[in-house]
């Protein structure tokens, strides 16, 4: 099963993940002003939330990795060298 984690301090409370998620995995806690993972089991691993999240606070594990044909290969080779 796909596991999602939110870096709580990094969440800026923009609700963009809740708005974009096609399967309504997230809810929004109005008192904390943070996103909450309510239905993790519904996640289809499209990563829309992860791409839209302004702070990069969302991390998925155990999802099916689709090889993106339009990745910049030249840069990808450098990516793992970033400190």
């Amino acid at each position: 099963m796909i596991h999602i984690s939110i870096h709580e301090q990094a969440c800026r409370g923009c609700q963009l993940c809740a708005d974009i998620c096609p399967t309504k995995v997230f809810t929004y806690d109005t008192s904390l002003m943070k996103a909450i993972i309510s239905h993790e089991e519904d996640c289809i691993g499209c990563l829309s939330c992860s791409y839209l999240c302004p702070s990069g606070a969302l991390h998925h594990t155990d999802h099916h990795v689709v090889k993106n044909f339009y990745h910049d290969l030249e840069f990808l080779s450098r990516m793992e060298k970033f400190l």
Binding site: H7, A10, G13, Q15, P54
Partner: peptide, 19 residues
């Protein structure tokens, strides 16, 4: 391995992104 993260500047900002 270094602890360097892939997070953005927003991750340590203390502002709230309100609509």
């Amino acid at each position: 391995a270094p602890k360097a993260t892939k997070e953005s500047v927003c991750s340590r900002c203390n502002r709230t992104m309100v609509h």
